[in-house]
Nucleic acid binder design. Sequence first.
DNA 1: ATTTATACTGAACCTTCATTCAGTATTATA
DNA 2: TATAATACTGAATGAAGGTTCAGTATAAAT
Lengths: 200, 200
Amino acid sequence: MPMNKKKLQSEQTKKKLADAARMLFSTKGYKGTSIEDIVAATGSSKGNIYYHFQSKEGLFQYLLEEWDREWIEQWAAKEHQFTTLKEKMYGLAEQMVVNDLNHPLTRATDEFMSSEWERSDVQENAAKFIASHIEFNRKMLQEAMDKGELAEDNVQMLAVVLESLLIGLAETSKRSASGETLELYRKALDVFLDGTVKRL
Amino acid sequence: MPMNKKKLQSEQTKKKLADAARMLFSTKGYKGTSIEDIVAATGSSKGNIYYHFQSKEGLFQYLLEEWDREWIEQWAAKEHQFTTLKEKMYGLAEQMVVNDLNHPLTRATDEFMSSEWERSDVQENAAKFIASHIEFNRKMLQEAMDKGELAEDNVQMLAVVLESLLIGLAETSKRSASGETLELYRKALDVFLDGTVKRL
DNA sequence: ATTTATACTGAACCTTCATTCAGTATTATA
DNA sequence: TATAATACTGAATGAAGGTTCAGTATAAAT
């Protein structure tokens, strides 16, 4: 799209800044990440960050929107590969883990929401992401339930349970060796589907 | 224990400060909570906080230790009531939800760990809490597995899955009506035990 | 080639916030 | 009652961090 050299450079810089910021926010949290941290990580200048983004808050919201956009896009591109709920969930796990686009920001988002509680627009915006995520789960589970894959149950509640599990996994997997992360996700989803009790 | 009026007053004040701090840390995060916030919540003075606690960091670590201590204590007092794993887990849920002593601090702890990454002592101390929590799960699950309640499986991994679920529940339940929290926990633990798929 | 717009720099600014400390009030001790 | 210890206050300090802006370089347009 950008035919001239300048726009191209500019977009690359913006991406570089966004990438660094996402990684920092996800590991150090929202308040824990300073503009100076991003400067140190990118070699760019403070002013340049404010040239590309309105503010720290704006930068974070940009990441949230980008996240949401790319998430939906990527999922749409591969969803048709899967038929059973289990396959879908494994696909979900893979998308979440492999290109860790998803939850790196969940904790920071939550922190962001409670810390920047004052602004109703911020609150509203960020809450939307959480809600849409649960809604995504709800639809997936409802569909499986309609097909008879899942036992009849309170879908909304199961969606929240699944969301909780995924958020928690994102949390704990930051502390474990990344090689085992996908394995952990799969095991967790197995448990979600099949439980842990001994069958007779 | 404190026979004189002054010590008694002092301990009450310290408790008041700790209680307010715990609530603030759990909702606003570690960095998101300022000493000024605690001042506003308690009516106490800045200096008084530093009279009772070494620093903000020290205050947080105090809360972690207190949490760990009370958690173990309370669990020990009621553990014998439960026999099956399901009962134990429901008891766990109740302890976690009703007197929300447990996880209020999990997110803040994680933020604390990654943000205060520099100090190795802090790191070490806080990591211990996470590890001991997983170890607690592991023992409980191992015991149930030995009794034949659970299917043979990778206990360590299940312990991490359970921990993830609990962390995530703590996270999401902050956003939902508190009346439904216990119900959500129970449903989540049901899922952990029995899964969600339709049985033939 | 000159002008204009875009991309970027870094020092200065200002607010927030943790921490300190000199002083005060209250209770315990002698 | 006098002295000492304890519990507290709140203004001052200094560091950290978000934001601004005047200026510079580079590319696009005329």
